[in-house]
């Protein structure tokens, strides 16, 4: 028994070291004064200053944020409807195809999704004249498509663990199906929708391959710019970008953990179980 726990413990330690050391190294080197990004030349903020002057990166970041906000919001709306369809709408024709279309984007290689969407946009343009140009709009549509599947899965699993009798009671009391969804279901799945939004936001902000396919000339998202830079090797400004992103994520996670902790304590103090 003892030897096994030691084995598990050391694997855990190794695993977490493996997961976190590269990230920490990245953060550390973002404060490195030396332009040879892997030689330590003293502490400095110079790459952050350089970042502020780098119009290309700043514009790309702004574009990425815009796309991420819009696509996450739309994906949450559509994904929630999809979740409701999977878990509250009973049987309907084409359900199997629908569940397939929800599950497939989760594992579909990005190159395929990207290529297929680009070919769709090209064909649509040929047939209808829309979209007249590819750029932020086409990237947004692509991001909505693959991240709504993630939202749908999150919402659906929340619905599955939720007692349907709440909605039945509301309907029994005279609630119109739409009103029941609005007054009962949506407030109850709001936390799932929020985590779905956050996930969709992150996925959009993070995506390189699909954006590369669906973007047109001139519209470069942050990952596209970063990719073109790091393809050539270590780039100190990218270390700074990484540190900023890691800082925001860490802050968000600490905030979420604190909120969860507070909620749990309130619940623990209030009820008996």
């Amino acid at each position: 028994m003892k030897t096994r726990s030691t084995f598990l413990l050391s694997t855990l330690c190794f695993g977490f070291a493996f997961l976190y050391i590269p990230i920490l190294v990245l953060v550390l080197y973002s404060f490195n004064d030396s332009p040879l990004a892997t030689v330590w030349g003293g502490f400095s903020f110079r790459w952050y200053d350089a970042l502020l002057d780098n119009k290309q990166i700043l514009n790309a970041a702004l574009l990425s944020l815009k796309i991420a906000v819009v696509s996450a919001t739309c994906a949450t709306a559509l994904g929630t409807l999809a979740g409701l369809t999977l878990n509250r709408m009973g049987r309907f024709r084409g359900r199997t195809v629908f569940t397939g279309m929800i599950a497939a984007p989760l594992v579909m290689p990005e190159v395929i999704t990207g290529l297929s969407l680009l070919l769709l946009f090209v064909s649509l343009q040929e047939l209808t004249g829309w979209p007249s140009a590819r750029g932020a709009n086409t990237i947004t549509i692509a991001h909505i498509t693959f991240s709504m599947a993630y939202v749908a899965v999150i919402v659906q699993s929340r619905l599955a663990s939720m007692d349907e009798s709440l909605e039945e009671a509301a309907m029994d009391l005279g609630g119109h199906p739409f009103a029941v969804t609005r007054d009962i279901t949506l407030p109850l799945i709001a936390p799932a929708m929020l985590s779905g939004w956050l996930l969709a936001f992150t996925l959009s902000l993070d995506d390189l391959v699909i954006a590369s396919f669906t973007s047109g000339a001139g519209a470069s998202t942050l990952p596209m710019v970063i990719f073109s830079k790091v393809r050539l090797g270590v780039t100190p400004e990218v270390n700074a970008v990484a540190t900023i992103i890691i800082g925001i994520v860490a802050l968000g996670v600490i905030l979420a953990a604190w909120l969860m902790f507070r909620q749990e304590r309130r619940r623990g103090g209030g009820g008996d179980s």
Binding site: Y20, V25, L26, Y29, F227, V234, V238, N239, A242
Partner: peptide
Amino acid sequence: LVILPFWTSFLLRVYAWIVMLGKH
């Protein structure tokens, strides 16, 4: 702790290994 890295950029996590494994 397992999920956390997932929320940081995938691209940047791959890039981190360029910093780790490069010639220098």
